[in-house]
Design a protein around this nucleic acid. Sequence first.
DNA 1: CGTACTTACCCCCCAAAGGGGGTTTTTAAT
DNA 2: ATTAAAAACCCCCTTTGGGGGGTAAGTACG
Lengths: 203, 203
Amino acid sequence: MISVAIIDDHKILTEGLANLIDESGIATVIGVAHSAADCRLSLGFWRPDVLLLDVGLPDVSGVDFCREVKAQFPEINVLALTTHNEYAIVRQMLDNGASGYLVKNAMADEVLAGIAAVAAGRTFLCHEIDLLMKKPSSKNIWLSPRERELLRLISEGLTNGEIAEQIFLSPETIKGYRKNLLLKLGAKNTAVLVKMALEQKLI
Amino acid sequence: MISVAIIDDHKILTEGLANLIDESGIATVIGVAHSAADCRLSLGFWRPDVLLLDVGLPDVSGVDFCREVKAQFPEINVLALTTHNEYAIVRQMLDNGASGYLVKNAMADEVLAGIAAVAAGRTFLCHEIDLLMKKPSSKNIWLSPRERELLRLISEGLTNGEIAEQIFLSPETIKGYRKNLLLKLGAKNTAVLVKMALEQKLI
DNA sequence: CGTACTTACCCCCCAAAGGGGGTTTTTAAT
DNA sequence: ATTAAAAACCCCCTTTGGGGGGTAAGTACG
């Protein structure tokens, strides 16, 4: 029997989900947490085979928490469970150690299939995400770490000069990055750039 | 017995939620839809006392759908059920006819209390939202329709001149609105303005 | 009747962004 | 060893944005 822990702040969802898993016969829920802090306290005792992890936690980013969990318990298979269907989020989760990714509007059988797959050491993407990751789309934009950093600073309202000061580069360099970001995202100006960055969860 | 219909695209959540409601003894679920389109087809047959409405539907904005439902079936009490805890969203839902508002991480008993309250014709806000709406905070920003329109056009990357052309106003007027928006939201520049607009769901 | 808010308009001035053209070094992959 | 990408840098020029000051009509509400 596969042991599963769930971490999600939506209490209504966790109850239903725990029921679903327990009644499936393939897995059993050994713990539920509603925040990353709760989870840190218990995860060492639970030692689940699979951790169902919501990306939209109240206290920390799911990406960071996934990395944290994998660093401390590499044997736990993390299965992301979230509302986000953006390329950048999926990719960041997978890059940070997640074994699978489910969107919350997936069917119940996909949840069980995902749990079984990641418990067996395989990777699993639900149908919708599988399509998203395979289909080469102009919306599937991937930025370098430096570009993401610049985008973050731009969205915080820093001017080229201020950014240059903060990260010890020439203002002309910042200008170059900015031009490149506009080109890469196909944005007309800063307003659109920030909008796309937030909508596509690039920062 | 109160009759309830649920509209939410998160299938895992609706199953658990329907169970919870049916077992409470105070209400019974007479229908579930996973999109606004599905709901339109069935709502006339169901005629529920309470409609549990997710604001993050895949096909239309929950605000628009709420207005639509109330226009067609004024006797149905709409209870918003969503992840969003932003002032602007709550206010827009209430302005468009919702009788109550629940966040998805609310406890199960709040869901039942909310259903009972709105079925009885009262309004209901879950604890977290009640606090949010009462506490006068600098984050509780409310814009006039015109300001929201301007904010939308700015976030789409239009320049003052382009906006002026589109809505038949002087570019200087647009500039005035822009300055006022920066002041109202406390934003340093357009980048921050767009970021705040999206984060606080003002557009 | 007054007050507050929305909508609409105008001036000057300079800082910042955006379009165009480039170069070099380092790093990673094939 | 070659290629490709990321990271860093530079100059010229025009458009746009943002800070500072305003004015004034319309309307909603007590």
